[in-house]
Structure formats: structure tokens, C-alpha cells
Nucleic acid binder design. Structure first.
Lengths: 224, 224
DNA sequence: AAAGAAATCATTCTATTGGGTGATTCTAAG
DNA sequence: CTTAGAATCACCCAATAGAATGATTTCTTT
């Protein structure tokens, strides 16, 4: 059974710092959380700076963090808190659902992401998940995040790369590293002429005019 | 309160398809899940092909999927199931925790990721989260996934790029697109000589020897 | 007012590139 | 056995790129 929703009263409740600039929202949040027997709200902050200070002072288990905050936004605050105290789990609770903000928030170190306006239960589940180091993502943003995991490999470019012969691939990789034709020749124990032939073959197959574009195609195709 | 861990008996239980090749594990899983009042195991499959077929036939709410499976692995199976029936939620339950497998699994469409050997409660939370479209990531892999969200922007390269002047940036962008110096000159209404000067400035600041490497640095720095 | 960075252009010289063409060898597929 | 692709090399030629210097103008910062 989960802690946040459990019935047994544990000796050490989960301590929470609420970071929210809207007084109404802050109050409502505190009400919702304190009604849980195993949660204890130990602090509040209404801007990012205060959030970092309070986190350092109170060392809560969990920070429930808004994004839109005065002075220092929730993402920057999350970064600072995580940097100073990696063990503090941070649950984002915000109405921002744009891809950039969500990704930025999670990259900055947030453990869970909740969207305002959905049920309190979800927030409790998120807090619960975060408390044990897991991650919870609100349905509104879950797919968005998962889709973002796919490496942006350009399919067309990858297909073009696939046409290259073994040798051409080797040459291309060295081209990407900025080697000149003579350098490639000596690295592969080939005549410079041969390298030139391969380079031409590569450019033809990739349908590009010069080695810079060939390198760009290679990189976009995921040839790191 | 969550469904999977709730006490009330709902009229329509969550239907589950178990995909697991180890008979022992399959049995244990089924025991664990059927003991929950609001879950109903409606099918089992012990390889990827059967999983896809059973999913199509049974249309369960949730598929609990292993990764290491005979014939068709769990990741490929997930892809096919999600493609045919996007509303079926898939919970990965596996002992694989390498970055590649986790990312591949989530990219293929999995909604939640659990690691074998941890508590049944976590699996129930994951099923619960997945059921409503949310995402749950096991503590073992949560950080791994979150870290993977950071766009792989090479900090050193980005710093080097930041040194460039406005004009140099414009020139660099065109270089990345494969434009020659004369082409860049006419696009920016400059003398080819000026462009050459800028190109040299760029290569000096980026500490590279030719335009290919300059383009590579630009791309790695996130200058798409 | 002076200093410095940014942006502009020129000239000269050498190395590298890319296009075109042709040839040989080897291997795999038809 | 023939064909096709891959890999190897050569030669020629025009265009481009890169290095080295020097110079002017504008704009900002001290």
C-alpha cells in the first residue's frame, strides 16, 4: 500500500515544502495535503529564491513546486535545489503543459509532473512515487515526454546513409571528424585518389554537393 | 484513491493481459494481480507474436509485458500493439535496466516501466497510473530516463559558439547548410572576401581547421 | 577622447576539393 | 558465365577554401 494514501499512521510522516505564488492555491494545496495522515507540510514559499532557501533550511522529503514564480522560476529553483540536495524529491504542480516547459522541468531534476486542475489523488500518487524515487507523469504530459525520448533521427537521411558501402561509411565517418582527403587516405592506408573516388560516391548517394552537407546528413541520421 | 489499490469493488474491473515467457513468473504474476478485486487477468501469452494476437482478440485495458521474449521481443510487440490499438496501455515488467532497452521500450509506446524483483505494490501503482494514461517509472530507471531528456547539447561547443559575433553566427548557419563562400556572400549581400574573413574568424574561435568541423561543432551545440 | 571589438573589403599564394573519365580486380548474384 | 557492385588507383582541370596581412568604418565602452 502506498504511503500517501495509506491508512496506517507511520511514525515519520513525509515532510513537504509547498512552493506556490498564488495564495489561494497555496492554501488549498496545504489543506489537501495536511488532510493526509502521513504527510506533513513543513513550509511554504511563494517565489523561487525563498523556495531554495527554505529547502536548505527545512530539508523536506518533497517539494511541491509551481513553475510560474516571481524572481526565480520553478525550473531554475528545482535545478538549484537538486544541485545542493539531490535527495530532495521535487513534484512539479503546474498548469504549464507546453513541450518545452515540461521537458525543461524534468531535465532540471523534477521527479514527477502533475497538472493543476486534475484530481488531488493524482498529486498524492505523484508524491508517493517521488518519495521512493520513482517518477510519475500526468496523463496530459506523459505521451509528450515519451515521444520526446525518440532520438530525432531523420528517416530520409538514415535511408540515404544505408545505401553507402562499408568503405564509404568509414570514409564518411572520418569526413565528419573533419579529416581531409589526404588524411583519410593515410588513416585507411589508401591512395588519396581512392578516397576522392569514395567521397564522390558518398556525395552522389547522399545527393549533396559538398562534404559539409555530407557531414550534416550523417549527423542528422544519427551517425554520431 | 487508486483503482488498483482501492477497497471499493467497481462494476467494471480493469482487464489485463500478461505477457511473460517464464511459467513460474507468469503464475506468480497472475496470483498477485487476481488477488486485487478491481483487476482481472483475461489472458496470458508467452511470446511476442501471441501477445499481439491475444491483445487484438481480447482488447484488454492493460498489457503487462516482459522484454525478453521468444520469437518477437516485448519492445517490438509493444510497437505493434500500440500501432493497432493505441488505447491499450502497456506496462513493462522486466529485469532489463540498461539505458538502451529502457529508452527503446518507452519509445515503442510503453506507458509505465517496472523492474522485476521490486514490490508488487509498485506494479499495482504502475498499472493504476497506466490505466488512466499517466506514466510511472520505477526508481531504478527514473533518473536514467529523465537525464535522457536533456538534449545532448555539448556544453563546450555551445560555449565556443557563444563567442561568435552576430554576423559570424549568420555565416556559420549558412555554412551548416552547405553554402559555399560565394553563395553566402550573395545571400548576405557581402563581398566574398568579407565572408572569407568571417569564416576564418569562426574557425579560429571554434578552434577548428575547416568548415566541416565548424559545421559539426554547430550541430553538436544545438544550432539546428 | 581613446581603445577595442565588429564588420567591411582587398590581395596574394598554396592546398584542397570536386567533376569528369577511365581502368583493374574481386566477389556475389543472376 | 555474365553482370553488377565494391574497392582500388590514376590523371586532368577548374573552382573553392584557407592562411597571412593590411586597411577602413562604425559603434560601444571606458
Amino acid at each position: 500500500m502506498s504511503n500517501a494514501t495509506g491508512s496506517a499512521s507511520n511514525p515519520a510522516p513525509t515532510t513537504i515544502l509547498i512552493v506556490e505564488d498564488d495564495p489561494m492555491m497555496q492554501l488549498g494545496l496545504e489543506q489537501s495535503l495536511t488532510s493526509q495522515p502521513d504527510l506533513e507540510v513543513v513550509g511554504r514559499a511563494d517565489d523561487g529564491y525563498l523556495a531554495v532557501e527554505e529547502a536548505k533550511k527545512l530539508k523536506p522529503d518533497i517539494v511541491v513546486m509551481d513553475i510560474g514564480l516571481p524572481r526565480l522560476d520553478g525550473i531554475a529553483a528545482t535545478e538549484q535545489i537538486k544541485k545542493a540536495m539531490p535527495d530532495i524529491r521535487i513534484v512539479m504542480l503546474t498548469s504549464h503543459t507546453t513541450e518545452n516547459e515540461v521537458i525543461a522541468a524534468l531535465s532540471s531534476g523534477a521527479d514527477a509532473y502533475c497538472v493543476k486542475g486534475t484530481s488531488v489523488e493524482r498529486l498524492l500518487v505523484a508524491i508517493d512515487a517521488a518519495r521512493e524515487g520513482a517518477s510519475y507523469l500526468d496523463p496530459t504530459v506523459a505521451r509528450l515526454v515519451m515521444d520526446h525520448l525518440k532520438s530525432p533521427v531523420n528517416e530520409a537521411d538514415a535511408a540515404a546513409i544505408a545505401q553507402l558501402s562499408q568503405r564509404e561509411l568509414e570514409v564518411l565517418k572520418l569526413m565528419v571528424e573533419g579529416r581531409s582527403n589526404p588524411e583519410i587516405a593515410s588513416e585507411l592506408y589508401l591512395s588519396p585518389n581512392t578516397v576522392k573516388t569514395h567521397v564522390r560516391g558518398i556525395m552522389n548517394k547522399l545527393a549533396v554537393d559538398d562534404r559539409v552537407q555530407a557531414a550534416v546528413v550523417a549527423l542528422r541520421a544519427g551517425l554520431v
